[in-house]
Design a protein around this nucleic acid. Structure first.
Lengths: 214, 214
DNA sequence: TAGATTGTTAATCGATTAACAATC
DNA sequence: TAGATTGTTAATCGATTAACAATC
């Protein structure tokens, strides 16, 4: 189905397009040109047209792009219409914040269940999500189609837990542990949310700004 | 001081180097070559040498790099030794997770104080961080050197709060609101931690994998 | 039809990789 | 000195931008 390999840069821009298109849609805007969209996003019109043309012809010459239609097409490219499922591992602060705050549904995901080692948490429900004991996880993975695992365990538990997940056939991990989970050549898909990397990049930009002001 | 502009790609790799060097240091490894480091990180030796040479000559021909020394140099480039300060705005789930879980000190930051609109939170301390009322923020910013603001308010409050921050002279925001805060050409430094963008990228990779398996 | 704007090819720019002289 | 590995220049590769024909 997929023709050529899509570059990482393009993929990282897709969610940004999606959010902007949602915003335009909400504002009742039905049509937009690559020039206008580029101005709002800080991209060039060329880049936008190139990006979209990786996946097909979504616009109409002389008219531009239909906002709701384009929105659906990008959502589909991202897999938002595939009914993906997720389980959460680790209901600590960050896990809790995700369950309570992050709207998985909005992005096409169904958060089936959470797992934790803490007996004080097991059996409870948080924001409508049931917490099961870690021991129940292998069976759960066997009996359910779980597309991604959200990993929010403490740092020390990160590596052993990841290993266990991979042993149980998990092939995609959304990683909040701030630890590298796998070797560079691993087959598992890992998406890292490394808070420290983000903060340090910001720290660099701040330093650079301060230095140039001197 | 800074010579040429450092590319974004290089900057994003620096925190990754830092974490790896910390790991090597902890493991008692004192010396490493670009080849070995490259193998561990999944980068080419050339890239590593190019990256470091953006900032100076950190290695020694015939020997390689001194791990603790290189670690310190990268930490310094990132601004970790500058005693930066931060305040947190919004002590909801995600703010709470950051205060309780994220070790600002470890990355060279001092989290001075938190601010919230909720009277039920104001006056309390969480993990040693005092929560003040939002009204106290402008004065606090006037009277203290605050290098970055961690923005963890609800989505609806994101834009007005950002505007208020900018009006009060804030020039760097670590943004957890999942909302674009400023126009593309704004002078404020914004580092986004967009959970949804990250999840959707993962969703794309998962879809791509599924499609190619068919 | 005329104007607008896409889809797509070609040109440019930048980042990564390769190669090798310098040197520890 | 010989071997190893950097620093750095040159070559390649890929991504972005520009240009323009196609077409709505």
């Amino acid at each position: 189905m997929k023709k050529e390999k899509i570059s990482n840069n393009v993929i990282r821009r897709l969610p940004r397009y999606l959010r902007k298109l949602d915003e335009l849609k909400t504002a009742g805007i039905n049509r937009i040109s690559s020039t206008e969209l580029g101005q709002q996003l800080g991209f060039t019109p060329s880049q936008i047209r190139q990006d979209f043309n990786c996946f097909g012809e979504f616009g109409q010459q002389g008219y531009g792009y239909n906002v709701p239609l384009l929105r659906e097409q990008i959502a589909s490219i991202l897999g938002m219409d595939r009914g993906y499922t997720a389980v959460l591992i680790g209901v600590g602060h960050i896990g809790r914040a995700l369950v309570d705050n992050f709207c998985f549904q909005e992005w096409g995901f169904n958060l089936l269940q959470a797992f934790d080692v803490d007996p004080g948490l097991v059996g409870k429900d948080v924001s409508g999500v049931h917490i099961s004991p870690m021991e129940a996880l292998p069976d759960f993975l066997k009996n359910n189609k779980v597309d991604i695992v959200v990993l929010a365990v403490p740092r020390d538990a990160a590596l052993p837990t990841a290993e266990m997940l991979i042993d149980n056939g998990v092939n995609a991990i959304w990683n909040f542990t701030n630890v590298e989970l796998v070797e560079p050549d691993s087959k598992v898909i890992v998406e890292n949310v490394h808070f420290s990397d983000s903060l340090l990049a910001l720290s660099y930009f701040v330093s650079d700004r301060y230095d140039s002001q001197k």
